[in-house]
Computed example of a mutant assay.
Amino acid sequence: MTLLERYILRNAFTAFVSCLVALTGVIWVTQALRELDLLTGKGQTVLIFLTVTGLSLPALISVISPVALFIATLYALNKLNSDSELIVMSAAGMRPLRLMRPFLTLAAFVCLAVGMITVYVMPASFQEMRNLVTKIRADFVATMAKEGQFITLDNGITFHYRERSGDALLGIFMEDQRNKDKVVVYLAERGQTVENNGQAYLVLEKGSIQRKEPNSRDSSIVAFERYAVDLNAFNNEDSTITYKPRERSTTQLIFPDKAETFYQMQPGRFRAELHDRLSSWLYPLAMVAIAFAALGDPRTTRQGRGLSIAAAVVGVIVLRIAGFAASSAVVRTPAAVVAVYGIPLLAIAISLMLILQGATLRSIRAKAGALLGRIAFPSRPSNSQKA
């Protein structure tokens, strides 16, 4: 790579990193604010809060990186043209494909990073986030219950204890209304949470269980000296976590368990998620090609570039909308898989055609200008020729 190409690459890379950090930071803050209930409602530590929100960063980076690369390419090309460097390069005979080489190098790096994140890192982060959130929701006694307060979970569980004595809870009341026809009330003098083989239990002592009979006003009461309640059974999630397609590894999407009930219900979502991951690396390359097709042509300072920038932005928006539409279509029919890969490849092909066509038109204009110049101002014969 020549010194000039390294100079262009350095400008584009600096702009890319700046855009990536800024956009990721802003969007991450908005996502983090949505998880504040981990601190306020579920009583988690700052470390757990940062862990949960940090696990969303790979997904953000994979989405933001192509956009940051597109903005960086527009910025670098516009800066080169504003400083008249693009005009000088073109006048010196630098071809568009050679000028595009630094941007393609940066695009190759981003394509590799996006591909690695979407295929390996992002599914693992989603799966870890699901496990952590499920664990937080399951052990609601340790994370949400507060002394002297009644808490009600979304699934219909109401819990209360009078006071805490060391690790023990005194004066426990718990009502299970998940099934309105079979309401169960637990009363106990004391209790303590115990974890065994990854399962959380609430061990109650000296209490009673009151069960309402279905379709009746009668209820039965059973007294006990010691009773263990499985807290995981009160969670909204199933006891065995069923991971969504985006939370599964790429290998599990390529070779799914076709006997699984969840897969049989929504095979299209597995197919769409797989091809979204495998085609994600094409979008950085497509966005660089669109940006270069719009601003790669050198222009004088009197020629406005606003329309070209607007056209590039519209092109990227259309590209992403078409990509999302193709992904949605794959859920319904396997035939739409062609569109998932064809849309970014078509954008690359059209952009390269415009770039090469522009180079051909500039070459024709240059030759025509030179020919007209020779016709309008023919060279005068020298003194020796006159003699």
Rank of each mutant, 00 (worst) to 15 (best):
L77E: 00
G323Y: 01
L153P: 04
L345M: 15
L170P: 03
Q44G: 08
F377G: 01
A223N: 15
A138D: 15
L282T: 06
D276I: 00
L278G: 13
M1N: 14
N383F: 10
A336H: 01
N131Q: 11
L282Y: 10
I209K: 06
V133Y: 07
P267K: 02
L278V: 11
V46C: 03
P378W: 02
A335Y: 15
L202W: 02
A233I: 03
S208V: 04
G268T: 05
I48P: 03
A68K: 06
F292K: 14
M287K: 07
S18F: 00
I71S: 09
S216A: 13
G148Y: 04
A370K: 14
Y243R: 03
T333H: 12
N232M: 07
T2A: 14
C111I: 06
L74K: 02
P102M: 07
S62Q: 05
V183A: 04
F377Y: 11
G198K: 12
N78V: 07
H275S: 11
K367P: 01
R6F: 06
S90D: 12
P298G: 02
L285W: 10
V194E: 13
N196F: 13
R162D: 13
T158L: 05
E237C: 00
E35A: 10
L60W: 07
P298W: 08
L86E: 07
G171W: 06
L132T: 09
L202G: 01
V67R: 06
G358Q: 12
V67N: 14
R269Y: 11
L33P: 11
L106T: 01
F13Q: 02
L74C: 15
E213W: 00
G198I: 07
L354M: 13
M287Y: 09
L20V: 00
E147I: 05
Y7D: 01
T118C: 12
Y201M: 03
M174P: 06
L170C: 10
V183D: 02
T193L: 05
G54D: 07
V133H: 11
I8W: 09
V330G: 12
S90P: 03
G41H: 07
I87M: 10
D139Y: 13
T2S: 15
A387T: 14
Y227C: 08
D83I: 00
G171V: 03
R226L: 05
G268I: 03
F109I: 15
E225V: 00
G306L: 11
S165M: 10
A22S: 05
F16I: 00
L132P: 07
T143N: 15
Y227K: 09
R226D: 09
V337T: 12
I364C: 08
G54Q: 08
Q31P: 08
D230M: 05
D167N: 05
S351R: 02
F70N: 12
F234C: 08
G296D: 04
R190Y: 01
N235I: 11
A142F: 03
P267E: 14
Y243K: 01
E5D: 13
G323H: 08
P381N: 00
L354T: 05
R6M: 13
I157C: 12
Y263D: 06
L319D: 02
P256D: 01
G358D: 15
D154A: 08
T143Q: 15
R95H: 05
T261H: 02
L319I: 10
A347T: 11
S249D: 07
